[in-house]
Amino acid sequence: MAYQKIVSTGSVYKGKTGMWLYVFHRVTGVGLFGYLLLHIISTALILLGPEIYEGAEAVYKNFYFRVAEIGLMAAVLGHAINGLRIITVDLWSKGSDFQKQLNFVSLFIFLVIFIPTTYKMTTSYFDLCLEKSSSGTTVVDCIIRPIPDWK
């Protein structure tokens, strides 16, 4: 019986793009909340004066954190654009008829903003690192150095 077949497949929902966008929204949401707490603490350190604040900020200024910052940008942009997609599906009466198109439009908008942003954040890191560091510093030094020797 067709009905029994449905029962025996268990309760695991196997959606496609929509399910993965739901997973993406939850994972980025939880991640962004965690980063928000870290960010509130590091910013509040400014009350303790320039030395402590800039000492804490220096940790953020190595290349690995720049990669994480690009990931942060991806999470913020992705969560924002996917959120707009969700609002569109919720409030536009024909939204659910155009889910596939809305997914593609969302991905397109994301890439149009994210790609140039990543380019700027990467090139700017090396430009500033080479400019601020003592002469003789190479791009490789900028990548492997855990904490920069400048402020």
Binding site: E57, Y60, K61, E69, M121, S124
Partner: peptide, 8 residues
């Protein structure tokens, strides 16, 4: 750029 972010 966050590299320029300081107290000032």
């Amino acid at each position: 750029d966050t590299l320029n972010l300081d107290y000032e």
